[in-house]
Simulated assay, not measured.
Amino acid sequence: MVRLTADLIWKSPHFFNAIKERELDLRGNKIAVIENLGATEDQFDTIDLSDNEIVKLENFPYMNRLGTLLVNNNRITRINPNLGEFLPKLHTFVLTNNRLTNLAEIDPLASLPKLQYLSLLDNTVTKQPDYRLYVIHKLKHLRLLDFKKVKQQERVEAAKKFHSKEAEEQAKKVPTKTFTPGELADAQDATKHAPKVVGPTPEQITAIKAAIVNSQTLEEVARLEKALSTGQIPAEFAMLKPDTNMAEASEEADKMDTDGQNQDSVADEQKQDDGSTPIEED
């Protein structure tokens, strides 16, 4: 963090810019607080405070000459409601990429009587409903907002929409999520005590396979096979534990596999016998 001292002001670059205005360059100094600008003796048309760490736009001395203020890429969340009293000739204000979030935070800009060119791009406030119309309504002399010309049709529409204080206040209301005491604790408790999802045990898999063998309908076979493929345990097998019945089910499943292997062996032997017996010809 760097303090904005009179010494820093005197040592910073100052020059005539492209439009022949006298400019003071204070950008990129990690300045957090605006102070000591009286040291400029109001000798500048433009002051560039971009790329710093300013949070509040305040502490300006009376500067009757200043017409352009550049404060993009800072952390501005608050603007002095009486800013116009200190910067009566300010016509161009660049606030791009700051942290203004709601319409109420830009109300102080209405105190600037000569403001014609304004940029609030890359501030959260620009995503608020009716943002553009609200700004046009508050800043009567604005000609360019976010680098887009303010049209007469927009002025008429803004005047109709915000014809009363009640309409303005309604626009500034930001919906917030209500918090119910204990809601988070209840959610955490429910998560804590929720049953853990586990896959079927080897015993349950064996029992399901045995049940598939003994199924009487295709629908039952499909249901059990789906349970095996997805890892979901059917209700009738959920409480199954290794016991005598489980042993019997296991033996039945093993028998099913053995029978299948025996049938394959018999088939192979028959095939070999058929192939090895020569055909006698008369």
Rank of each mutant, 00 (worst) to 15 (best):
A167L: 10
P129D: 06
A222K: 12
E21I: 03
G260T: 12
E252C: 12
E168H: 00
K127W: 08
T68S: 10
F179I: 13
F16I: 13
V94D: 11
F147Q: 11
K127E: 13
E23P: 01
N74E: 05
N262D: 09
G38L: 13
A167N: 07
Q153P: 07
L121W: 08
L69G: 00
M1S: 11
S215V: 02
Q116P: 07
K138W: 03
K209L: 15
K20M: 14
A238E: 12
K149S: 11
L115G: 03
N17F: 04
D189R: 09
E183F: 00
F16T: 14
E203A: 13
E236F: 12
L133R: 11
T96K: 05
K226P: 01
L57S: 06
D189L: 12
L218F: 09
M246K: 15
D257T: 13
F60V: 06
D48S: 10
A194V: 01
T77N: 00
S50R: 13
N36R: 08
A187N: 00
D268K: 14
T96Q: 05
F15E: 09
V174C: 09
F93K: 05
A158V: 07
H14L: 02
A238V: 13
D264H: 15
L139I: 15
V94G: 00
T176D: 02
F15I: 09
N59A: 03
T124V: 15
D42N: 07
T124Q: 13
L224A: 01
L4T: 04
T77K: 02
R99W: 10
T206V: 14
V150R: 04
I47F: 08
K56A: 07
I47K: 05
R27V: 07
A194Q: 03
N64I: 15
E251A: 15
K226M: 12
A39M: 11
F16W: 10
R65W: 01
I34P: 02
A32M: 13
A249P: 04
P113G: 08
P278V: 10
T244K: 14
G182L: 04
N29S: 12
Q261P: 11
I79F: 05
K255T: 14
E53Q: 14
R65F: 03
Q152W: 03
V150Y: 07
N59G: 01
N214D: 15
F237W: 10
L112W: 00
Q263H: 14
S250I: 14
V71F: 00
F44L: 06
M246P: 07
I34G: 03
K11E: 15
A207E: 11
E169S: 00
S12F: 08
N245H: 10
A227R: 00
L133H: 03
I34E: 05
N98M: 01
Q232M: 00
D273W: 11
E154Q: 08
D146M: 02
Y62L: 15
D259S: 12
P181N: 01
G260Q: 10
K138Q: 10
A159I: 04
K165D: 12
I212Y: 09
I212K: 08
I47A: 07
A39L: 09
K127C: 04
D264V: 09
I136F: 07
L24D: 04
L90V: 12
L120E: 03
T206I: 11
R99E: 07
I233S: 05
R132Y: 02
V156T: 14
V150K: 07
G28C: 06
E41D: 02
A167H: 07
P234Q: 13
L112A: 09
G67K: 15
N74L: 02
K173S: 06
P13I: 08
G38E: 15
